[in-house]
Simulated assay, not measured.
Amino acid sequence: MSEETMEINAGGEICEYGAVTRRADGSYVIHKGGVPYHVPDTEEFAEEFAAVSAYAAEHPDEVTEEPAPPEPTFEELKASKKAQITAYYDRVMAKAKEGYSAGEIETWDVQRKGAADVLAGETSVEAVFVAELAAARSEAGGSTITAEQLAGRIMANVEAANALIRAALGKQQGECDRADAAETPEELAAITPSFSMEDAG
Score class of each variant (00 low, 15 high):
I191P: 04
Q172G: 03
K81A: 07
T146V: 02
A140H: 12
E186P: 01
P193Q: 14
R166D: 15
T146E: 06
E7K: 00
L133A: 14
E48I: 02
Y17P: 02
E175S: 03
V110E: 04
R91E: 14
G114W: 05
F195H: 10
A156W: 00
A46C: 08
A181G: 11
E3F: 00
V92H: 06
I154V: 13
S101Q: 07
A131Y: 06
G142S: 08
S124A: 07
A68V: 06
G99Q: 06
A51D: 03
G12T: 14
I191S: 04
K171V: 11
E48D: 08
G152H: 09
L164S: 09
W108Y: 12
L169F: 02
A151R: 10
Q149D: 14
A161I: 05
T86N: 05
I191T: 01
L164M: 09
E16K: 12
A127V: 03
E44R: 02
H31G: 01
E175A: 09
A182T: 03
P69R: 03
H38T: 09
M6E: 14
G201H: 01
L164N: 07
A87G: 05
G103A: 11
A51Y: 00
T86I: 03
D180R: 07
R22M: 13
H59S: 07
G26F: 10
E65K: 02
R91V: 10
T123I: 00
R137K: 14
P193Y: 13
F129R: 05
E139Q: 15
Y37Q: 01
A134Q: 07
N162L: 09
A19I: 08
G141H: 08
M155Q: 12
A115Q: 14
E7N: 11
G34H: 07
M93T: 12
L133T: 15
T192S: 14
R153I: 05
K95I: 04
K81Y: 07
S2K: 11
T64A: 11
A83D: 13
Q172D: 02
E139S: 13
A151Q: 12
A87W: 06
E139M: 12
V158L: 08
R178W: 10
V125D: 15
G114E: 09
T192G: 08
F49N: 06
S194W: 06
V92W: 03
Y28T: 01
A182F: 04
E198D: 15
T184A: 10
E132G: 01
P67C: 04
A140N: 13
R178C: 09
E48P: 01
E43H: 12
A134T: 04
A160Q: 04
A51P: 02
A51S: 12
P185S: 06
K97Y: 05
A54I: 02
R137T: 15
Y100S: 00
T64M: 11
E98T: 11
A96L: 07
Y55L: 02
V29L: 07
S124C: 09
G141D: 13
G12Y: 11
K32F: 12
F195S: 10
A83H: 05
A24Q: 12
L77D: 05
V39R: 06
A182V: 01
E186M: 02
A50V: 06
T86E: 10
